[in-house]
Simulated scan of single mutants.
Amino acid sequence: MNVLLLAVIWRGVAIPLLYELLPHGGGSHTEIRHTLMDDALCLLRAADIRVLYADREFVGYDWIQGLARRGIPICVRLRSDTLMDDWTAKDWLSRLQTGHAGLLVDDTVVYGNR
């Protein structure tokens, strides 16, 4: 069994806010994620969310579009084979300079969103 957990970061500490027990060992489905976000938006406004950080399993066109419709900015760790414009994330990351751990890509289409 897995747990889908939504936490808020306050003064550098992650505080669990909502969770959903998943009836299987795999990842969450988009519908469950949207339901959890809807529940969270009963507690706070989308405008209060500075950014939603997500791991690489939290990708997909419908998920990203749903966040965009709600006005929630997202920062997600991408799998190396994720296609961004005509490049994979691995191609983008291969351009990193020594000593850098990641990069910020603006004005790039990922799952139909800039």
Rank of each mutant, 00 (worst) to 15 (best):
T30H: 08
V13M: 06
G99I: 03
T82G: 04
V3T: 15
L103P: 01
Y19T: 01
T98K: 13
L18P: 00
R77W: 07
E31F: 09
D81R: 07
M37K: 06
T82S: 13
R114V: 11
V105A: 09
G112T: 08
I9W: 02
G102P: 00
I32R: 14
L83V: 15
S28W: 04
L44F: 14
V59W: 03
L41G: 01
R33P: 02
L44A: 06
A89S: 07
D85A: 04
L22N: 02
L21P: 05
P73L: 09
D81Q: 09
K90Q: 14
D85K: 02
G71I: 13
S80A: 12
R33G: 06
I15M: 13
Y53H: 09
Y61H: 13
I74Y: 13
I72C: 09
C75K: 07
R69I: 10
A47K: 15
L103Y: 05
D91Y: 01
Y111V: 00
L18W: 03
N113Y: 06
R11Q: 15
H34T: 12
A46R: 09
R56A: 12
V8Q: 02
T82K: 09
A54F: 08
R77K: 14
T30Q: 13
D55N: 08
D48T: 06
D85M: 02
D62M: 05
I74W: 09
N2E: 07
D85Y: 05
R70V: 03
V76N: 05
A68W: 10
R70T: 06
V8Y: 01
W92G: 01
L41A: 07
H34W: 11
L83H: 14
R56Q: 10
V8P: 00
L52S: 00
D62R: 12
V8A: 11
T30W: 03
E57H: 11
W10N: 13
G27D: 10
I32V: 15
L104I: 11
D55T: 04
I15R: 12
V8H: 01
A7W: 06
L17P: 00
D107A: 12
D86F: 07
W63K: 01
